[in-house]
Design a protein around this nucleic acid. Structure first.
Lengths: 334, 334
DNA sequence: TTGTATGCGTTATCAG
DNA sequence: CTGATAACGCATACAA
């Protein structure tokens, strides 16, 4: 490897001057500046970020730990995070945990040893993250909790208002005249499932349309949604609408309906949650409650690298507003 | 931050001993080993990967630069890469270029300055990567080119046999009796498009079924596929089948067909390419030519961190075999 | 404006 | 077996 010393020698200056030129600090005469630049160019010199970081005790790297990159929600989130990081000159270390607490620990450990500026952490469903590890990470870097709530966590939290979103979805169906409404939600052991459950329930209950026997709790997968839907749609009388806890679950519902010869939206209205871009792909285009996934990722990254930039520094909880994104999978009850 | 010195002091040993214990090297008496471990535990000490890397001149990081993480093909690839890296104790730095040469340069620069062990590079469609940057990267780390061919590149290449895959798709339709076959392929300026084009053409041509007026070249997007399909499907007589250059394009074809009241597969057979997991979501389930995306990612990572592990070190070109993954979007011409 | 010298937290060499 | 100590490549305080 060529080092700053090689550049200095070739340019006939000291390494301090080379450093100054490269970082644009201090006053250096034009003559030396161009000689240094020339030497850098000739040697193809690239300063070592490793050495630089050791000296400055800062890395210009952030980490993100997500449960599952195959879940279409996360690529968009990552895009936001990466753009946010990039805007500040940071690069992103990615770790996918598969929801496994052991792998979460492993990645958080890596991130800590690399002394990243901060970590955006989305815990898996069953993860009981090692409190000590998190505490240590938080001490040396900024920790931002996203999407799924980490209980007992004191730092910044970025997520959508799940209860609000769920109530928007439920209200939409009620306004369309539906009353026999089934719910296929995420299991209650995740904050996402629990919060959405309260949203669905409170609105449906208020309208006298909450039927516990039509409520299911499953996993964040298409298969889970399909299975639950298949069972629910065989009830007599059949539900006229289904509230799906996520878009992926809603896709499963669409499949189940298609397989049973039930036409959406004629015979059944379906509402998803998340607003992943793939809702455009299915037929009929899914009606869903969307969240500003990309923006949330960007905010999380900004919170990590420039915490003061976000106005109300006191507010640790950044709750985003979801909105109804109407598709062709819902229509008035006829 | 707590350093190796703090640990040494608390344990009453030299920093050399602490280092030995942590890395499990050299001979250290049991007594000191446990004293060091105890001190590490008490202080919550985590060795600095930055300092370690400066000393050892190795980082245990690899980089991957992809064009677009929203393209569902890449998350699966990344999963393979990350698992492969993780298996060797490496972490993954992610960069998405948006196909922009400027951002590619930026990320490759970052990766070089971080002295990563190697880089998996998937160039964007129009990228003319700076040869000098690549050469420099290749000198200090291992460079693996994936998916889209980087011309003039001398290192390892990992990709599917595109021509073979395209010919498999074309043959499938021919065997089903189709003759009026349209092709919606990727633009020829990417190696993927060009190679698939030769596969489609040679097989169709041999069967006397190659009709240049039914061939389109577009972008890797659903919209592009939908637009081209809408136009092609208005031809008289209408094509009875469409070869789509990617699954996403095929999704666009399905949408166009649905919008025009053309039933798949009754009135139109559609074959995709890539085998992304979402083919399960659409109705009818897409017939496609699949590639071992995850495995390819794993191999690329292994090639980077342990190049000797892959038997035939002489062969630089790792071409994977695609296969037909039959769905419900194709059927015999009636 | 420029250069010299110190130290960042490790690993590894060399003595003891 | 254990401990001093010298780098690793850079940024920076201090001198000149």
């Amino acid at each position: 490897m060529t080092t700053i010393r090689d550049v200095a020698k070739l340019a006939g200056v000291s390494i301090a001057t080379v450093s100054r030129v490269i970082n644009g600090e201090g006053q250096v005469s034009d003559a030396l500046v161009s000689r240094v630049h020339e030497a850098v160019r000739r040697l193809g010199y690239q300063p070592s970020a490793v050495a630089r970081s050791l000296k400055t005790a800062a890395t210009e790297m952030i980490g993100i730990v997500i449960p599952d990159i195959m879940n279409p929600f996360f690529p968009e989130l990552i895009r936001g995070v990466e753009d946010g990081a990039r805007a500040e000159g940071y690069v992103t270390l990615l770790g996918t945990s598969g929801g496994d607490a052991e792998r979460e620990r492993e990645y958080l450990g890596h991130l800590g040893r690399w002394r990243v500026r901060g970590v955006i952490f989305i815990p898996g469903r069953h993860s009981v993250p090692d409190a000590a590890i998190l505490a240590h990470l938080a001490r040396q870097s900024r920790l931002v909790n996203m999407d799924r709530r980490l209980d007992g966590f004191a730092g910044d939290v970025v997520m959508v208002d799940n209860a609000r979103g769920a109530s928007i979805a439920a209200r939409h169906l009620l306004e369309l005249g539906h009353r026999r409404i089934a719910v296929i939600n995420l299991a209650l052991d995740s904050s996402v499932g629990a919060e959405r459950a309260t949203g669905y329930r409170s609105v449906l209950h208020e309208a006298g349309a909450y039927d516990e026997t039509l409520v299911r709790y499953g996993a964040y997968t298409l298969e889970s949604g399909r299975a639950d839907a298949t069972e629910l749609l065989s009830h007599v009388p059949r539900p006229t609408a289904i509230l799906a806890g996520t878009d992926l679950i809603a896709f499963g519902v669409l499949q189940a309906a298609a397989a049973m010869g039930i036409q959406v939206p004629r015979d059944l209205s379906v509402v998803g949650f998340d607003g992943i871009s793939l809702i455009e792909v299915v037929v009929p285009r899914l009606t869903t409650v969307a969240q500003p996934t990309y923006q949330m990722g960007r905010l999380a990254a900004t919170l990590v690298v420039r915490p003061d930039a976000e106005g109300d520094a006191d507010s640790r909880e950044h709750l985003f507003e979801p909105w109804l994104d109407p598709g062709a999978s819902t229509r008035p009850l006829s």
